[in-house]
Design a protein around this nucleic acid. Sequence first.
DNA 1: AATATTGATTAGAACAATTCCAATTCTCAC
DNA 2: GTGAGAATTGGAATTGTTCTAATCAATATT
Lengths: 143, 143
Amino acid sequence: MIEHASIASDSPAKRLSDSGLRATPQRELVYRSLLQQRDHPTAEEVFARIKSEMPTISLATVYNCLETLVQCHLIRQVNHERSSTRYCPNLRPHAHFHDETTGEIHDVDLPASLVEQLKSTLPADFHASTVEITFLGKTDKTA
Amino acid sequence: MIEHASIASDSPAKRLSDSGLRATPQRELVYRSLLQQRDHPTAEEVFARIKSEMPTISLATVYNCLETLVQCHLIRQVNHERSSTRYCPNLRPHAHFHDETTGEIHDVDLPASLVEQLKSTLPADFHASTVEITFLGKTDKTA
DNA sequence: AATATTGATTAGAACAATTCCAATTCTCAC
DNA sequence: GTGAGAATTGGAATTGTTCTAATCAATATT
């Protein structure tokens, strides 16, 4: 869907150490897993995907790594209703489209101008740092 | 903030019975509580607010009532990150502004045209039934 | 009006996602 | 190499919500 959504320009190792954090094998593996399969997995899903490569890793560590990666802006959280938090390495401004039929989440690039227009609808004393936009609907996939 | 955000035009009793549901004292009380204090309370908060008026009501019932009211479109759910679901009787198309400082949630009316513009940024085979827009930021409240 | 049928409420148990905790292990600076 | 702080680990604890089974209420049927 999204061809070459941006990756943090710095290496993850640099990004981590710039934040005073260590580039551990667990953190790098979790990050690589997210890059490899960009389908907004949950922590449990990441855990399942990387267990074979690092059988000793624990779910708690996966949660810790994901949180760390979010903190140093290498990945983002995606929440919908109250289901499990999902993670995404696409750092460009984008919205999420939730396919009600398949449950899949698709990234949708957003024109910066629209985001600005949205922010400008706010009362003067409201200063938004972030706008989150989530579509809910269906696709015509004839696949 | 919002002066006269719309209320369902039908009475809650009618709206409920139209959906084949009963207008019980619990459901009406929960609904009245949401209308009275429009600050997007959680289920627990609603429970705390109405306990004095109906001391025998249970938290499970509050959850049940809220779900029922959502189902027959008298109220809406508001979720943010993974914190408790909040409830809101404002049925007009609007966005939510989360004040990072106070934790308050404010309704922000949205021009329908912007919502349409947003939907039009979607690939042709994506059909959105709903768009959720959430701002995160601060306010200049000198209060 | 009594009774059956179905719907709603209740309290507490169960559950899922996540966080906490205390112990161990690792890494880097010296 | 040693010591101090960071990170990982497994399991327990927590939180918000849903489930369950029993009771209660309301409407429909006779």
